[in-house]
Amino acid sequence: MPFENLLEVTVIKNKLTAREREFCLSFMQSGDAQLSARRAGFRNPDSEGERLLCNEKICAELERLSELRGRLLTALSVIGYQRLAFGSAADAASLLFEENPSRETLGKMDLFLVSEIRRPKDGAMEIKFFDRARALEKLASLSMERESSGSLYDAIGSVAERSEGDD
């Protein structure tokens, strides 16, 4: 059984009520058991929040959500570094020719690559960009980490498959 399917099996085995799922989602956001129990509609959030955190099904769901969040943040990081490494500076360059750009004009521009904008006293404009070379280096290191971690997941999956065959 591949490692990714272990999370799906956990979800199937740990059927939660709608309120318990809401508690888990709220807890992942706030980290506060009492507040999460109140948001999920439990009658006595002071005691229910702590009790829910001690529930095995709730802990398994929180671990699953934490794993998903970690994978999402990793993917978003890669996307951000890709934009920094390969994005266009055309909007930032066109900004140099704008005398007094409106908020609407600025809102339509892709200035993701810009790290700093300054207007010295002489009226000129200075635009500094994030370092593309550093973004490329980070992408390369993330790629290498992903390749090495993939082999770890493969190893875990093969051990799990072998242990199932021992039954």
Rank of each mutant, 00 (worst) to 15 (best):
V11M: 03
A18Q: 09
R162M: 13
R103E: 15
L95H: 00
I12Q: 12
S36N: 10
E63F: 05
E8A: 15
V11P: 03
P45H: 01
S151H: 14
T105H: 03
R21Q: 09
S66T: 04
I156G: 06
R83Q: 09
E161T: 11
L65R: 14
V159E: 12
L7R: 05
L152T: 11
D166P: 02
M125L: 09
A40T: 03
G31S: 09
L16G: 04
G107I: 07
G80K: 08
E104S: 04
T74I: 11
I156A: 10
G41K: 13
D110W: 00
G80I: 06
M144G: 12
L16M: 09
S163T: 12
V78E: 12
R43L: 12
L142H: 02
S141A: 10
V114M: 03
K108P: 06
I58H: 01
L73G: 09
S115Q: 13
S36G: 10
E116G: 06
R64K: 09
P2K: 07
D131S: 15
R103P: 06
I117T: 13
E137D: 13
D167Q: 13
V159I: 14
I79F: 15
K138G: 00
A155C: 13
A40Y: 01
L53T: 00
L16F: 09
R38D: 08
P45I: 03
T10M: 06
L35E: 10
L95R: 02
K138S: 05
I117A: 14
Y153Q: 08
K138F: 01
R69C: 07
N55V: 02
R162L: 13
F112S: 05
Y153P: 05
L73E: 15
N55M: 03
D91I: 06
K57E: 00
M144R: 15
I58S: 00
L76I: 03
E98Y: 10
D167S: 11
Y153T: 06
G31E: 09
E61G: 02
S143Q: 15
S30K: 13
R132S: 11
Y153A: 06
A85I: 08
L95I: 02
I58Y: 01
A92I: 03
F112P: 02
Q34A: 10
A140G: 11
L139F: 07
I156R: 07
F3M: 11
A18D: 09
K57V: 01
K138C: 05
L111A: 05
E145S: 15
V78F: 05
L139V: 09
L95G: 01
M28F: 01
A124R: 09
F23W: 07
G41D: 04
S158F: 03
A75I: 07
L25K: 10
V159K: 08
K128D: 11
